[in-house]
Structure formats: structure tokens, C-alpha cells
């Protein structure tokens, strides 16, 4: 049972959290101006690297706050957690 550090509540068991997919994929400014291909890229395509990936998580069973985390997808280690609106921190892998 991994611990995930909620930026508000501190470390809690992973079952308290829900996953929200890749972070920093903002909703397009004006979807109507996008081609079908561009829109499909936003809706359906996400990065899938081996290594650090910035992701959204929500502390669902706790404070219900969404936050971002950089997770190493090969080890599951959470390299950084940061609040919404804060810049993605540099992480050493």
C-alpha cells in the first residue's frame, strides 16, 4: 500500500486517492477553431513515458482537493507533489 502525499493532508494510503490522468493538458482556449485531428489529439492522446510523468490526483476520501504529482511510471515513486496552479517542479529521476 503506497503512500501518496496530499499537499494539504500529508501522507495517506493510496486508496484514499483517485487518479486523474496526465496533468497540464489544458482545455483548449477555443475548441471550435480546432480541426478534428487537433481536437482528437486533445481528447484521446496522452503521454505514456517510462519515467517521470506529471499527473492529476484527487484526495477523494480526504479533503477532495485535486493536485498534481510527478510519478515515475516505472517505479511508481512519487517524485513531487504540488498544488494546482503551482509550476511543475524539476525532479531528479
Amino acid at each position: 500500500m503506497q503512500l501518496i502525499r496530499c499537499p494539504w493532508c500529508g501522507s495517506r494510503e493510496e486508496v484514499e486517492f483517485h487518479y486523474g490522468g496526465q496533468a497540464h493538458v489544458s482545455y483548449p482556449e477555443n475548441p471550435a477553431e480546432l480541426s478534428d485531428a487537433e481536437w482528437a489529439r486533445y481528447v484521446f492522446f496522452r503521454a505514456n513515458p517510462r519515467g517521470p510523468l506529471a499527473e492529476r490526483w484527487v484526495h477523494a476520501a480526504g479533503c477532495r482537493r485535486w493536485f498534481n504529482a510527478v510519478r515515475d511510471t516505472s517505479t511508481h515513486e512519487l517524485l513531487a507533489v504540488y498544488r494546482i496552479g503551482e509550476p511543475q517542479p524539476e525532479v531528479a529521476r
Partner: peptide
Amino acid sequence: AAMILDWMEEFAQTEWP
């Protein structure tokens, strides 16, 4: 119920703060 609240919260907190 829970899924929709999470969904709405995600937009309120992350996309349109």
C-alpha cells in the same frame, strides 16, 4: 453521484479556478 461530483470538482479546481 460520487463520480459526477469528482468530475465537476476537477473542472472547478483545475480548469476554471
